[in-house]
Amino acid sequence: MTNTHVDYRLSQLDQLEAESIHIFREVAAEFEKPVLMFSGGKDSIVMLRLAEKAFFPAKLPFPLLQVDTGLDFQEVLDTRDSWVERLGARMIVATIDEAIAAGHVVDDGKTSRNRMQIGTLLGAIEENSFTAAFGGGRRDEEKARAKERVYSHRDDFGQWDPKMQRPELWSLYNGRIHAGEHMRIFPLSNWTELDIWHYIHREQIEIPSIYFAHEREVIERDGMLLSLGPEIQPKGNETVEKKMVRFRTVGDRTQTGCVESEATDTAAIIDEIAVARVTERGATRGDDRFSEAAMEDRKKEGYF
C-alpha cells in the first residue's frame, strides 16, 4: 500500500491528474458516444495514460479516432500501434484520401493537409454519430485557446462560436447537446507544455522516438528545420545538413519542423524546455505562422 502525503497536500501534477481523470469519468458517464481524438503526439498519449488511469482495470469505454494525413511519421504510427495493443483499445482511422473520395473535403491543390484534417475529422464524427470528442488542446498553447472551455460546444456544422460559450463553473460540466451537435472535451486544458513533460517523465510514458534527439538530414527553410523526405527536397540554394535534432510537435511531416537538440531523454528535454525562449508552436509549426489569428480561424471551423 502506498502512503499518501502526510500533510494532505497534492503536487500540481497530482492535482492536474485528478482534474483530468474527473473529466474523463464525467464524460464517460454522461455522453452516449464519446471518442478520443488520437494524433500520436505527446499530448494525446498523455490523454491515453489519464484515460487508462480513470477506468482501470476496465478497458477504455470509448474508441480512439485518428485522422491519417498520409503524411504521418512512421515512428508516430509505431507508437500508436504499441499503445492500442497494450490497452486493447478500439481504433478508428479516418483518412484524408477517403474523406476526399466521400466529398467531405476538396483537394484544390492549395489547401494544406493539416487544414483538410478539419473536414475529415468532422466527417468521421458525423458518420459515427459521436457526441463527445476528447482533444489534447491546452490553454497555454496559443492565445485563442486561453478562453476555450473544458467542454467546448460545437454546433451541427462542428463550429466553435467564441462569443456563445457556456459559462463553466466549479467542476460542474454541462454536457447537454442537441441531436447532430457534439462537444469537444479538453481534459488537458490546465496543463502546460512543461507539465506534460514532467508527467511523461514521472510516469515513464512511451512516446514516439522522434521527440528525442537523433541524427537526421534536414533543410533550413523560412527559419525552420524540415526533415528531408519524399515531399521535402532542397530548392534553390538550400543545402541538406546532418544535425542532431528533436521534434517538439509531431504533425504532418511536410509542415512540422524540428529543433537542434542534444536531449536524448525526458529529463534533458525538461531542462531544455525550462530555458526555451520560443513557444512550441511558433518554433515549429508552419501552419500557425500565416497570421496572428490563424488558430482562431481554424478553431471556429472545427479544428482540434
Partner: peptide
Amino acid sequence: ELFDTEIAEAFPPMSVT
C-alpha cells in the same frame, strides 16, 4: 485505490476508486 495502487488515504481533490 489510485489507478492500480492501493493507497492509505484519499483526500480532496484526489480522483480515486
